[in-house]
Amino acid sequence: MQAHLRVRRFDPEEPAPQPRYQDYTVEAEDYFTVLDALIKIREEEDGTLAVRCSCRSSVCGSCAMRINGHATLACKTKLTDASKGRDVVLVEPMGNMPVVKDLVTDLQSFWDKVWAVEPFLQPQGPVPEQEYLASNESMVHLTGVMNCIMCGACVSDCTVLAVDPNFLAPAALAKAYRFVADPRDGASKERLRALSQYGGIWDCTRCLECVQVCPKDVAPMDRIMTLRDKAMQAGYTSTYGARHTIAFSELLKESGRLDELRLPVMTFGIFNLPRMLSLVPVGLRALVRGKMPPIFHRAIPGVEHIRRSFRSAEAKR
């Protein structure tokens, strides 16, 4: 088959470096991945095209790039799938990080953030005579998150990172979860305290991009949600994020549905004057337009069953 690729090119060593798009047509076999096509282009047509790869079998994590707008591994994406329903396959470098050349990005900030979560075991107590023992059941649930191959795809497409470079971002947070949930780690509480700070678990906007694009089903956002739960259970409940989640759940338990007027009041605290005042202009604008939630909030019929489910869930935890 013939495949058409449109590749984003960028060479910082050109006199006035500007990204541009270049079209290539490749004679491809049915079994080709997008990476195979790129390598063929580089070897047969245009030796200046920069691509990074190694294992070619989705193990090493070095070939992550954006294909048709979403980050993925080029060696795991079949060319036939990527061309389905389109005339040209769009190939671009990952986002949220600087481009070294063409499809090769600089992962330094990625590694800095992974390093920042102290990705190593910190056991406490006396050192055992032989190894640290952990039961099978207490470890097996960690295999999913251990599948991470550090490719950077999740970080490339993270929507919070796109507006705030300070955010720890999905890969590092998933790595943090891996140690918080490890029964041999002794620093979990301290980790949860640090992760509750600005730039940590509460800054994720739950956009699900990282869950969607991760080629190894690590589901970073789900790990972040579990970290939130663990942080609240460990007593770190004073952040706006934790207060919001707790208030939301309490209001839902009370009436079975969301009480939009009380939620911000409970999140910020009625005596938190600066934050309460910051709501005034927004509230006034809404009031003028008749766009206010009802003042008298009614519970749903059968709310007692909702409350019972809450109580039973609380008892189980």
């Binding site: 759940s249 549905r257 749903i300 019929p301």
Partner: peptide, 22 residues
């Protein structure tokens, strides 16, 4: 009319199973 809120992904931060139950 008797259905509850879905939990909006917020309740699920605390307890996914409870969210799924609702």
């Amino acid at each position: 009319t008797s259905a509850s809120c879905t939990g909006a992904g917020v309740l699920q931060e605390k307890d996914q199973r409870l969210g799924d139950t609702l």
